[in-house]
Design a protein around this nucleic acid. Structure first.
Lengths: 128, 128
DNA sequence: GGTATATTAAACCAAATGGTTGTTGATCGA
DNA sequence: TCGATCAACAACCATTTGGTTTAATATACC
């Protein structure tokens, strides 16, 4: 099944949009690279039934944020960081662009204030 | 109404988890700092009814990613980057930690391979 | 005033989400 | 082999999400 970039981002952001799932990611992150937690360990701190926690893990798997390795009766989960990087890249792309333009506007205002003294009598554009 | 940090992140990530809303953010980002788009402009490229688009804008507002200024009959929207930064910070926090540990593991493996020649006969641990 | 434009509101709908309980199956340890 | 443990599965439920259509409201234009 082919899942395109956009759909992939949907899944990752959706996975991150629930505190229980973020808590799981946090816990797996603490485990370090190659570190693993089985489902019980992930579910334990979560104030919800085991099946509920299990479903959250599946959501994380669907977003490819977590991979599962079955060893005996335990399902060992580990974090997979790549989709997290994709998500970050997406947000950064627009955040940086946006903030860069804001800095450019700041610079322009600075220049207009100090260099010339508002020579054409235009009212200075205001932010906020 | 007080909305705590965790809940705020829920809202932001949820807002980012739909392609229509990401498209709106992209469009507003193109508009530059201080740039605005009214609802019709945001809705136009979206292959859905106007009311549907309007609801998406509300979701973005709820996440404080967009602010609305009503001018006459037009509702002018502008991007607000701060929550985007919060979201990025969250993901970066764990991604970096995780990748740093992975690099450390790589370095260790490197050292074991070149320095000693696998002296204890342990099978080399494999990643992937 | 009358008409077009921009947007909200209301009612409705299907599907997804997030949770529960109860049951089943596999595996580990004594 | 027996009991405890780890986890899936199924069925069910309430709420949210994402969409629609139709109607209402406020503003701009002629």
């Amino acid at each position: 099944m082919v899942v395109d970039r956009a759909r992939r981002l949907d899944l990752v952001f959706h996975a991150l949009a629930h505190p229980a799932r973020r808590a799981m990611i946090r816990q797996l992150s603490m485990a370090g690279a190659g570190g693993e937690r089985n489902l019980s360990e992930l579910a334990a701190p979560l104030r919800m039934s085991f099946p509920a926690a299990s479903k959250h893990v599946r959501v994380l798997e669907g977003a490819r944020l977590v991979r599962r390795r079955i060893v005996g009766r335990e399902h060992r989960c580990r974090l997979h960081a790549a989709p997290l990087r994709d998500a970050t890249r997406w947000t950064e792309q627009f955040r940086r662009n946006w903030e860069a333009r804001f800095r450019a506007l700041d610079a322009l205002l600075e220049e207009m204030q100090s260099g010339e003294a508002n020579p054409h009598g235009h009212p200075r554009p205001q932010r906020r």
